[in-house]
Design a protein around this nucleic acid. Sequence first.
DNA 1: TGACAGTATATAATTTTGATATATATACAA
DNA 2: TTGTATATATATCAAAATTATATACTGTCA
Lengths: 191, 191
Amino acid sequence: MSVKYAILGLLHYRNMHGYEIKGHIERHFGHMWTINYGQLYPNLKSMQEEGLITLADVSPSDLGGPHKKLYAITANGREAFVSWLESEDISPMVLRDPFLMRFIFFGFSSKEQAVKIIDHQIKMYEEQYTRRTQHLERWRRRGPYVRLVAELGVEFNQMYVKWLKRARREILDGGADEAKATRMELLLPEE
Amino acid sequence: MSVKYAILGLLHYRNMHGYEIKGHIERHFGHMWTINYGQLYPNLKSMQEEGLITLADVSPSDLGGPHKKLYAITANGREAFVSWLESEDISPMVLRDPFLMRFIFFGFSSKEQAVKIIDHQIKMYEEQYTRRTQHLERWRRRGPYVRLVAELGVEFNQMYVKWLKRARREILDGGADEAKATRMELLLPEE
DNA sequence: TGACAGTATATAATTTTGATATATATACAA
DNA sequence: TTGTATATATATCAAAATTATATACTGTCA
């Protein structure tokens, strides 16, 4: 649902074609959003039908491939964008991640196995942290809003790695008994 | 995809029916996962067909409504669960949130409008923080893994509210010129 | 008595994701 | 030169997830 508005937002800057929009989203919203073609092209099509955008130009690709379809935002599109921009969110975000789901069930595995997976996770997020701090300067030049979101990404990364390391430590320090307890205590009747 | 494994994990503790599984997921994974009936019941059906779970019993509801379908995990189900539990994640999580998407485009709105929405966000997350810290004790009793994820939820909450407040301050302190700059600088050619 | 919340399963419609198809050009190495 | 990888560019399909709604019965509270 937000995809449409991200597209409308980007078309405020200048006319773009699909592939270009995807590139922009990856570069500017990479911290908190991804987009895929299966979502992008059908949306461009339906948005055109709804009158939010128009096909401004079709020109051959600079470097092989199909023609570039350049889209422009319409007055209706601007209107829809503004009302979205001023709307309020109803539910807080959740840290939806397959790893955290798995983590909950680590009591069914060995401590060694759990630590192995956590180590992999730490490595992954430390690499991401390095990448993100390296890109911070570039994002800073994009104005305060892009900068602030980039900084949030870095802060989250820091906090998460810290948590992963603490979890690792506590799992190794805590006895296997404690791990077994997870299994038992979830069996307690619901309150 | 992880839904299946969450179900398999819960069925390790004891046999459950769909409605009960949803309740457990909300109570134990509420920080990082939600489930809905449109996902749950079709999954239970397909998992039964795949031989991961079996229908252990059908009994009338305690309090009106349709019969309870009690499901049990099979040997195949346990096997599938273990190999999932030991698998490694390939990509780090993203803070996918419609508010953050909107935040990026706040340069197109007034500072007052931006602050208004941020204030709403702060209120929402402060309330969530209160709820989460109140539930911490209950989660602690569920063993180290459930406890650690609950603590992560609280830590994230703290960090996020702190970031929101800083963002609010910087938007109010920074001139409107700076806000306009977002608009301009996003127009810079891609590197 | 009427509204609302809780127990319980189920599905339809829509949206999102992940993967793949198609087409061309460039760069680089074997 | 031949193959491979990467980049540009649009498009669609299958699978999965989300949202909303239907059905049906009970208990509680005003």
